[in-house]
Amino acid sequence: MRMKNIVLALGLTLVASSVLAASRMGHYENLQKGQYLQSPGGAYSLMMQTDGSLVMYRRDGTVRYSMGKHGQFAAMQGDGNFVLYSAFTVKLWQTNTAGQGGMYIEILDDGNLRIMPLGPVQWPVWEIGAERHDQDPTQAGDIVGRDLDVPGAGFAGHIGLWDGTQVYEAMGGQPQNAIRTSSLNEFKSASKYWGKTSPKIPAGLQENRCYLAYCTNQGYDHRVFESRVAIAQRAAQIRALGADYTLGRFATRATWASETQRATRGTYRCDTFVLDLLIASTAHQNANNEQAQWSNYVWNLWNGPKLPLTVFDAFR
């Protein structure tokens, strides 16, 4: 197997090499710090960085998939498991594919990284999937989803809302404010990306609200927005207010501001946060039957049992 050291300019841009690295690595082989795999056409690279991070990059140097940090080497084991090890041979990240015999890992030009068995049966035992750009959000109010970055619980998922330029998401581990923004690339690279779903918000909805922390005068502070813009404005308002995080399914919504009451922060996890943002498109003007059905649908999801995965699927 041919592998070459690779240099990162400013930590991001991959410097081209006149010799391509191998696109696959067989069992009993490993990636040491500074070594990498590269897809046949050079569109993607899987690098064992000198800082101990195992990261898959796109050609432009942005992150496609991040697997782990503080490692010493990544091994394609004889038992079929691909593992990132520390200097003390502690498993920091793994594909959990042990016990299936000889395997090889390969990186493809469609953005897929997969583990394949040796022999005639040719289907992956593990993969991140091809990168589908037609599954990226295109308008404010689109929901994006990915695996939850927790071993054994990834299926439950994590979702966020696209405001047209960035992703708003509720995250644990942030004591001051559970609401953060991230780029689409950051969201997609954190774990296996599901894609986007576009809620079918009826056309013609307009929302008349104050999106500030405190409304001093409704005539000046209230704004009328098309519903998808209103959703983005609500996301910015909640982030500005700050919010607390809960793992429970019962959330408290951030209040709306008024002339007599300052808006207050809410308590969310990722799915209840997204639903609260969509609720911002239900207090509509000129209601008709279609608009009323949309409002009932969102509120029923809010009031019923839910997980990030079920909320994501509910708007497919």
Rank of each mutant, 00 (worst) to 15 (best):
G157W: 02
V121M: 12
Q237V: 03
D110G: 09
L148I: 15
I231V: 15
A153H: 13
G204Q: 03
I238A: 06
D136E: 12
G99H: 04
Q139H: 00
A156C: 11
H133M: 12
W194V: 08
L205M: 14
R146G: 07
I201K: 04
A203E: 13
G145D: 10
G164H: 05
L108V: 01
F225V: 03
G129Y: 06
L184Q: 10
Q206E: 13
T138M: 06
T165Q: 15
V125A: 15
I159E: 01
R228W: 00
F225D: 09
I159Q: 01
A153T: 01
Y211T: 03
K192P: 03
D134F: 09
Q237P: 01
W93K: 08
V121A: 13
P199T: 10
I107H: 04
A153I: 01
L212G: 05
Q100D: 03
C210V: 12
R146C: 04
D149E: 11
Q166T: 15
N185L: 14
S183N: 02
I238H: 04
A178M: 03
R228L: 05
P199S: 03
G204I: 13
I238T: 08
E186K: 15
S191Q: 09
K192A: 11
T138D: 05
R209N: 10
L118K: 08
L184S: 12
G219C: 03
Q122W: 04
F155R: 12
Q237W: 08
C210R: 07
I201Y: 02
A213S: 12
Y168F: 14
V167H: 11
Y168D: 13
E207N: 15
R209T: 11
E226S: 13
M171A: 14
T97D: 09
M103D: 00
K188F: 12
Q135H: 11
W93Y: 01
H222Q: 13
K188Y: 11
G129S: 05
K196P: 02
C210I: 12
S183L: 07
I128W: 08
A236C: 09
I179P: 02
T95F: 09
T138W: 04
D110N: 12
Q206M: 14
I201F: 00
L184F: 06
Q218T: 04
T165V: 00
A190D: 14
G101F: 06
I115V: 06
A235F: 00
S198M: 01
Q237T: 05
E106H: 04
